[in-house]
Design a protein around this nucleic acid. Structure first.
Lengths: 336, 336
DNA sequence: ACATACAGAGTAATCGATTACAAATACAAC
DNA sequence: GTTGTATTTGTAATCGATTACTCTGTATGT
């Protein structure tokens, strides 16, 4: 492996000149620059990142800590971040905290150790609830999960609004007994729950809620129990996330209930299968790619300007109405 | 930030002793070890990774270069690798080459620059076809994609066998005109095509094949054209990957054709939606998690023993028969 | 008592870059 | 020709760890 010394010798200049050329700094004459570049090429020189980072105290690396990599939502967000990072010649360390505060802490510690330039984080509820920005030696942008208490750059969906619109749509379609299955371990689930409550209150209806861990299996089990025990059945069940929605669909399958006739269905996240199922499923689609892109933009801006004012980007979810949310043919509680 | 010097001073020992304690090397007395640990604790000392890596010429980091992170298959593989890495206190740099040889080269170069301990790679066809193990300064384990020419550690599905069994199942069910949509840009697609051909040859049938780029959109467009133009329609279409299968289902939806009555369906990869659709879809399920786990095991073994003999792990796909592959009620070309 | 071995601890070289500072050179103005 | 200024280049310190090597002091065997 050629070192900067070798390049300097080969080009007949000092290491400082080589370093300056490679860093693109001014104060190098054109002939020198050309000779250095030729030598770099000739020797196939590649700077040693460890040495560079040690001396310069910089790493062109970002951290991305998502709470569940299997969730297609985070998948899309990661992809957007990857794309942007690639375009900016930055490295990304992608970590999967798995909704586990301990793993999350481990990875945040790792980010410190790696001395990353910044982190994009979708925090667990525990962390968000006592979030102190000063705790981290690097800028952090929150993604997907944030609340109004927290003073931090963030990119989130307007969860309250989206959930409210989704629930109103159901009310408008004649549904009266509206159940809500939501992930209790994230701020997002909470906010969507609040939106649901708010819509119900507006319509004078009472809530039927079920908090659970936001995984397909948990949702499936909870929903199965619910569907078997709860009588009379509600008109419709709403899922606060794509994974929970999937669990619901599986539970319906398990119990032999048909939507939307036995019970209607709606949820968050437009996944490949939501429009393929028959009947297709009504959802709030999130602008996932846009969220990832915005997050990294906020982060890069913050890195460039550490003292900039805190910015929060709130994006609007798109309500996609499909067959699953139709009211029963002869709804007992609806007038229509 | 406390440095090792500060710890040494605080504990009243030399930096060498601190380093030895932290590395868990022998030759340190118990009292010294205890004092050092106490000082590390007291100062909240964390070793500087850049310095450590520069001096030791080691990075506890692995690279994982997948060809398409949106493909649920690679998603699961990544998760397995992540899990294992977390358990071994290793870092993973996850990169998405996006089926693009240029991006793949970029990331491999990045792995060199990062001086990673090893790489898990699902190579593009171009790279695999003139793969030279010696080209890389780190051990590489191939995952998902390999062929018998290549002398490299690898974890793959027995694609030929799986595809053969899937096709035979179709033949056994009375299908005669069997179309195959496959990804032309990966070794995997090729091998599955070969398995298909082999099964057809065994049954004295002739192939109807369609090579394409392995994305949902490409498959959807190609399938739509195919379904509109091709007459008579084949009895069944097989997709060589989950993404292509998804595109096929969408194309059927687009053209209003019903499976399995108008045309039957089967494919690779058991995704969340394959069993949820009605009719559910017959697939070869891959042991994805197991593949990721095996890949990292191979890699760690190779790192520990560089001169070990090359190993290839070939896993068996599981045929999951569902309704989508049933023959037509009154099949014109089947006897049954 | 003396040589030998060995465990424990310390000193200082080293990894390969960046960068502060000094030195050299070029060029313009007087 | 001298001086001053700007530009280009070089020298050497530095980042913070690891590790080769040296130096103790104690134990063991004869």
């Amino acid at each position: 492996m050629a070192r900067i010394q070798d390049v300097a010798k080969h080009a007949g200049v000092s290491v400082a000149s080589v370093s300056r050329v490679l860093a693109g700094l001014p104060g190098v004459s054109e002939p020198t620059r050309a000779r250095v570049m030729a030598s770099v090429e000739a020797l196939g020189y590649r700077p040693d990142l460890a040495a560079r980072r040690l001396r310069s105290r910089r790493t062109d690396t970002l951290g991305l800590i998502v709470s569940d990599i299997r969730n297609p939502f985070f998948m899309e967000v990661s992809r957007a971040v990857e794309d942007m990072a690639y375009a900016n010649r930055l490295r990304v360390m992608l970590c999967n905290a798995d909704e586990d505060p301990e793993k999350e802490s481990f990875y945040l510690q790792m980010m410190r150790d790696e001395n990353v330039a910044g982190v994009i984080l979708s925090p667990t509820l525990a962390r968000l609830n006592n979030y102190r920005p000063t705790e981290y030696p690097f800028p952090v942008v929150l993604v997907d999960r944030c609340n109004s208490m927290v003073e931090a750059d963030a990119v989130v969906l307007d969860n309250m609004d989206a959930s409210l619109r989704l629930t109103r749509h159901l009310v408008d379609n004649g549904h009266r007994k509206i159940a809500f299955f939501y992930g209790a371990s994230s701020a997002t689930g909470q906010q969507r729950y609040d939106g649901y409550l708010s819509a119900l209150a507006g319509a004078g209806l009472s809530p039927i809620a079920q908090a659970l861990k936001p995984t397909v299996e948990e949702a499936r089990i909870a929903a199965r129990n619910f569907l078997e025990r709860q009588r009379p059945l509600p008109d419709v069940i709403v899922a606060s996330s794509g994974l929970i929605l999937l669990g619901l669909v599986e539970a319906l399958r398990d119990t032999g209930l048909k939507y939307p006739d036995d019970i209607a269905l709606a949820g968050f996240d437009d996944m490949p299968w939501t429009r393929l199922l028959t009947p297709a499923i009504t959802v709030i689609a999130q602008p996932t790619y846009e969220m990832g892109r915005s997050a990294i933009e906020l982060l890069l801006a913050r890195i460039a300007q550490p003292e900039q004012v805190v910015r929060r980007i709130m994006l609007r979810g798109e309500l996609i109405v499909r067959e699953s949310s139709q009211a029963r043919r002869a709804p007992p509680s609806a007038q229509q």
